[in-house]
Amino acid sequence: QVALSRTQVCGILREELFQGDAFHQSDTHIFIIMGASGDLAKKKIYPTIWWLFRDGLLPENTFIVGYARSRLTVADIRKQSEPFFKATPEEKLKLEDFFARNSYVAGQYDDAASYQRLNSHMNALHLGSQANRLFYLALPPTVYEAVTKNIHESCMSQIGWNRIIVEKPFGRDLQSSDRLSNHISSLFREDQIYRIDHYLGKEMVQNLMVLRFANRIFGPIWNRDNIACVILTFKEPFGTEGRGGYFDEFGIIRDVMQNHLLQMLCLVAMEKPASTNSDDVRDEKVKVLKCISEVQANNVVLGQYVGNPDGEGEATKGYLDDPTVPRGSTTATFAAVVLYVENERWDGVPFILRCGKALNERKAEVRLQFHDVAGDIFHQQCKRNELVIRVQPNEAVYTKMMTKKPGMFFNPEESELDLTYGNRYKNVKLPDAYERLILDVFCGSQMHFVRSDELREAWRIFTPLLHQIELEKPKPIPYIYGSRGPTEADELMKRVGFQYEGTYKWVNPHKL
């Protein structure tokens, strides 16, 4: 086992960053958080920038500027975001240094004079007029057009580079997404736009490419001749908990499936790229999406959770019991969808996408189930092999396979070949997804960000279904809070070829 401390991990990262040409360590950078008073800024962006600063992973002359409508001070920003920093008493001095680099400007999102004030403020910072500028839009999409237009007109660096990070949702359907994309691309070049999907920053999602293309053993079996089906799962054990009003506007397909799960599907299904260059990788992902037809209604199961009468606390409440959810809402909190990649490698292999709230566990994984062994000599005792990439929690890679049961006879039983990170790298604290992705933006690497043509294809696949749901308002199937979801989803999976045995229990190697 390799035991690495946080300091050692960050030392390795620093070495990698400083050796590259793309990370300008000594240049002045300004990180501007648009929507600095909001939840995302408070819980994710400010803490992430602090962790990067604490670990010495930001360029040395980096300033952080918050911008929002609320009249706040840096002290206010500190008060609301610091509880999420997880700072230790030993880091007190470092924390003071961090907040000394912070400033805040209040202004409207659609007022040109406010942006001119913001620009004057940035120019007044040390070497601010020639600094590289990175704008993070932690804002609702309704203000994107006004904000990007004003940034472009008043706040661009004339000497350094300018980059803009856009948070999902990128529209509600193909038409609104196209409108937003066309607007942003009329102001910024594609190499300046970073559409963030934080799932692409997760260690195991990034590991998929290495697993596939750096190991000879997987190449020959990664196709329709050997793989019976692919299941991509995202499960949350909690409901909307008072935030249903926002969720109800989008629903589970827009929230998770059309982005996170579809991105994971691309990494499983794509061909080997010409290189690890950002556009070479994204070219292959677009090719996969172009091979997927629009979702067919007979390959869809929609569910909505109801309270568990035997549960406790939140578990007793259904989705419609959330006071922020519109009365009688038919918005799905669970969806199972089957897609097919219609190309030579994957023809006929079902890709089953499942996601839901208020389920029995927290889990995100990719599961490849292989065909049955031909010419069975073990009297149907063999179960199908599976390769599982567990994204969260407890990152893991393992192969479910058959071995001989101890004893006199040739009785096979299920076991696993474990390729888990935790076994080799004991207690290594890896940077989280937002840390990686923000560092990628500083480096100018777009590999783990969504390109406009990729986004367009993703919406093309799901828009007809979303429009049909909005028009017909089908009643989702009720499922109990804390269950596996509607049984109809299991029946759909069985119908397209997935075999669920229920006889195997994964042993978490992190707890051995």
Rank of each mutant, 00 (worst) to 15 (best):
R254F: 02
R254D: 06
D255Y: 04
D255S: 03
V256P: 03
V256W: 02
Q258V: 07
Q258E: 09
N259A: 02
N259Q: 05
H260S: 03
L262V: 13
M264S: 05
M264T: 08
L265W: 00
C266T: 15
C266V: 07
C266A: 10
L267H: 07
V268P: 05
A269C: 12
A269L: 06
M270N: 02
E271R: 06
A274K: 13
S275T: 13
T276P: 10
T276F: 03
D279H: 10
D279M: 13
D280T: 11
R282A: 02
R282L: 00
D283A: 04
D283P: 01
E284V: 10
K287S: 10
K287F: 06
K287C: 09
K287Y: 06
V288A: 10
C291M: 13
C291A: 14
S293P: 12
S293C: 09
V295F: 09
Q296I: 11
N298E: 13
V300T: 15
V300Y: 13
L302D: 02
L302N: 05
G303E: 04
Q304A: 07
Q304F: 05
Y305K: 02
P309I: 14
E312S: 13
E312Y: 13
G313S: 11
G313K: 11
T316K: 14
G318T: 07
L320E: 07
P323Y: 12
V325I: 07
V325M: 06
P326G: 06
P326S: 07
T330A: 11
T330R: 14
T330M: 14
T331S: 12
T331I: 07
T331M: 08
A332E: 12
A332H: 06
T333A: 00
A336G: 10
V337N: 10
V337P: 01
V337S: 13
V338N: 12
V341H: 02
V341R: 05
E342V: 10
N343T: 09
W346K: 04
W346T: 01
D347V: 07
G348A: 05
V349S: 03
P350R: 03
F351I: 09
F351V: 05
F351A: 02
I352E: 00
I352L: 09
I352F: 07
L353D: 04
L353E: 01
C355H: 01
G356V: 01
G356N: 00
A358K: 00
E361T: 09
E361Q: 09
R362M: 05
A364Y: 00
V366S: 00
V366P: 04
Q369M: 06
Q369E: 02
Q369F: 01
Q369A: 06
F370A: 00
F370P: 02
H371G: 10
G375Q: 14
G375Y: 12
I377T: 11
F378W: 12
Q380A: 13
Q381A: 09
C382K: 13
C382M: 14
C382W: 11
C382R: 11
K383W: 11
K383H: 15
R384E: 07
E386G: 00
V388K: 03
V388P: 02
I389Y: 06
R390H: 13
R390S: 14
V391L: 06
Q392F: 06
E395K: 07
A396V: 06
A396H: 04
A396T: 11
A396K: 01
Y398W: 12
Y398F: 05
M402W: 08
T403Y: 06
T403M: 12
F410W: 15
F410G: 12
P412N: 12
E413W: 11
E414M: 15
E414H: 09
E414V: 13
E414L: 13
S415A: 12
S415G: 15
S415E: 03
L417K: 01
L417R: 03
D418T: 01
D418S: 08
L419F: 07
L419C: 14
T420N: 09
T420P: 07
Y421W: 09
G422Q: 11
R424C: 05
R424L: 00
R424G: 03
Y425D: 06
K426Q: 12
K426L: 11
L430I: 08
D432M: 07
D432Q: 11
A433N: 05
Y434K: 05
E435T: 11
L437N: 03
L439V: 09
L439H: 12
D440V: 00
D440Q: 10
V441N: 00
C443A: 13
C443E: 11
C443K: 07
C443P: 06
G444A: 11
G444N: 09
F449A: 08
V450C: 04
V450Y: 02
S452R: 12
D453T: 07
E454I: 08
R456D: 05
R456Q: 12
A458F: 03
W459M: 02
R460V: 03
R460H: 08
R460C: 06
T463A: 06
P464W: 08
L465C: 09
L465K: 04
L465D: 05
L465H: 09
L466K: 04
Q468N: 13
Q468L: 13
Q468S: 14
E472T: 14
K473V: 11
P474I: 12
K475T: 13
I477L: 15
P478A: 11
Y479H: 00
I480V: 15
G485H: 05
P486N: 03
P486I: 06
P486V: 07
T487K: 14
E488V: 09
E491M: 14
M493I: 15
K494Y: 14
R495S: 13
R495A: 13
V496F: 12
G497Y: 06
G497C: 07
F498S: 07
Y500E: 01
Y500G: 02
Y500N: 10
E501F: 10
T503L: 15
Y504A: 04
W506I: 02
W506F: 07
